[in-house]
Design a protein around this nucleic acid. Sequence first.
RNA 1: GGGCGGUUAGCUCAGUUGGGAGAGCACCUGCCUUACAAGCAGGGGAUCGCGUGUUCGAGCCACGCACCGCCCACCA
Length: 805
Amino acid sequence: MMDTRYNPEGVEERWQQTWEAEGHYHAEPDTTGEPYCIALPPPNVTGELHMGHALNASIQDMLIRWHRMRGFNVLWQPGYDHAGIATQNVIERELAKEGLSRHQIGREAFVARTWEWLERYGGIIMGQLRRLGASVDYRRERMTMDEGYVRAVLRWFVHLYDKGYLYRANRIVNWCPVCESAISDLEVNHIEEDDTLTWIRYPLAAGSGHLTIATVRPPTMLADTGVAVNPNDDRYKDLVGKEAIVPIAERRVPIVADERVEMEFGSGALKITPGHDPTDFEIGRDHGLEELAVIGLDGRMNEQAGEFAGLTQEETETGIVERLREQGLLEKQEPYRHSVGHCDRSGNRIEPLITLQWWCDMEELAAPAIQAVRDGRVRFYSARYTDVYLNWMENIRPWCVSRQLWWGHRIPVWYCPDGHTTAAESAPEVCGTCGSTELVQDEDVLDTWFSSALWPFATLGWPEQTPELETWYPNDVSSTDRGIIFLWEARMQMAGIELMSEIPFHSINIHSTVNAPDGRRMSKSLGTGIDPLETVKAHGADATRYGLLKMSSSQDVRFNMKMIEEGRRLANKLWNVARLILANTEAVEPDLRPRELEERWILARLDATRAELEARWSAFEFSPAVNALYHLTFDDFCDWYAEAIKSRLYDGDAEAQATALAALERLLRLLHPVMPHVSEEIWSQLPARESRLIKAPWPEPDDRYAEEADALTRVQEAAEMVRRSGVAPTLEADEQRILAAVVRQAGAKGDGDPTAEIERLRKEISRAEGMLANDRFVQRAPAEVVDAEREKLARYRRELEALTG
RNA sequence: GGGCGGUUAGCUCAGUUGGGAGAGCACCUGCCUUACAAGCAGGGGAUCGCGUGUUCGAGCCACGCACCGCCCACCA
């Protein structure tokens, strides 16, 4: 027996190089065809391909290739995100290996070094995407810090500044002591942690007695400037307006009433530390309380912390608890579990601190972006994310956009000695307010997401009015992970509508999150990551794409290698059936004028699948689509059609050969968006009219044989009967021929005993008779349901009769 | 605390307006059959998480509960 397996290795790389070299990936605005554009979500420039990227690339490439075949002028725009904090952390780690810090080498050298590093080690994902067969236009690669993009970001900043949305303010922010920067609310992860709740007595200033407060952060008491109780709390009514004394700090602070205090929690009294807690900050501002800081930017106690200055918070807590115990002011300590904010990047605990930052008010930007989703101009797939988006947008809060980093877009604002601010796209000569020439630029950079919000149009040339922008804006689809609906999707909507006066794209596909096989998150640190390039190496890019699409059905999926293997088997099956047909066709042209039943039937099935694929893909339903391709190929094409025509192929039946070639051609077109390599490889061996499958037209609807879609049902049922009982029902001549071919190929004989089959039919008849005897069913069920039941009953009776004579 | 998703065969999961409980893998049986053993033909295996309700009829709809996961959130 000849062992023939399809080996994707080499084949896939060859086609990837050919397609790219022949320019099939490249788009030009003046090409004919309706524009279709997807902007690849820019991966971090320091990043590597992980399973989420691979899934999203498979989805987008499937859409892109499908539309390319349909004749659209397709652009899949690639590029990178400069990834401010992530990249800076990488370079700082590099420096640390040499025993250096960024402060030692200075800002200019640090930024230069970052560019050098990126030149050498960055941007490897595009190569990895190539290996997956992703047909992005690699000639149009952009980066959120390339020259043109920088201009776009500056324009965006000045635009928002001029409209009064951007302003500088001293507020409490999420400070990451490791990143040494503020971060936005969206970059904070709340994680449950075991902690200790400490109950502390604050003596009353007048007379005797005390008030007890409960806190998880005793060190912050050194910056307490008030105590708050709920105005409805009878226990403390008389104390409102009086003063308490903060122990250790020995500070007299007012007791205020505020509804944000929960009576049920702790003692019902809340120590107020406006400088180190977001809620306290707001309560403090509303009551005019002083704002003190005892914790510095490094997370350690600062000089205001008196005897604790320079200590860590843990050391300080120990010291404070000890002192309170000595003074008899420590009531109790108890274990307490609560959620604590952590930096999304460094994983470090967030330190709420008051610092001077740039903020952007979002309500007015959000309003039209809310409207666009509400009225359906922008749709989420699945639709359930619509509410997630709307809920966040309707409660949107000011965005802290400044970062105390060196890698990023430097804030285009200059200050004069009098403190006036001048925002400009290029360095101004004089202060816009007083004309001073002593200008100093803001030291900070912008949040990475501030620039990526412009991705759908800045990559097309904005702020220049380019032909690309004219052609491909708005884009069509954005496909991303649900984790960045707010960080990115929402902000692209806002920026697009604000700057382009038009939504950036009409469809937002939120793809599945691929977890490890055990259900945990895929992550390098957990050791649960699976490298998509490994599965490409083991099973091929086609198989990997197929498997990922097959898996991506619900919102969370467990990675399942069996699905990739299924893809590999599909590629192998396709390869082999193509060998059967190609080995038995000589000098015939593909011809779609079938004579025989099985030929009309396979063409009907091919067209039905085409229609199903179109419906599924239009609805961003990928798993049912690849499932349909699998069953079309295995069941319909190979197990039935190919088996039925095999002997005619051997016999040199030219018409059967011509039809087989045409049917194979059509099958390959349907498979190409999902499995481009194997389909192109087979295509190249066909006498096809188009030189490349990648640019061959997607099949037009062809309903000539639609009524034949179920033509083989009777044969298939007959085959089952034969295999079970050895007895066949009466069939038409052509049906009989197909049955003979398939049963002979299968080598199944049956034992000639119809007993089991008779029993099965009697059970079915009894069930159907029961239903039809139910008056309420017959009267109330839809007519077609009742009719179908009657037909089934009739058929079962006929078959039973055939068996029993 | 609020919201969303999930719970179907041993495993991973489909199940599209309510009408025959499915696929792949795994397992069992028979086959090297001039495309494919990475294959072909067949088979066993499910109280559809639990409960109540609506309906002639519920995996699907309504209400409640349990468990798992995710998102949002200023109870220290």
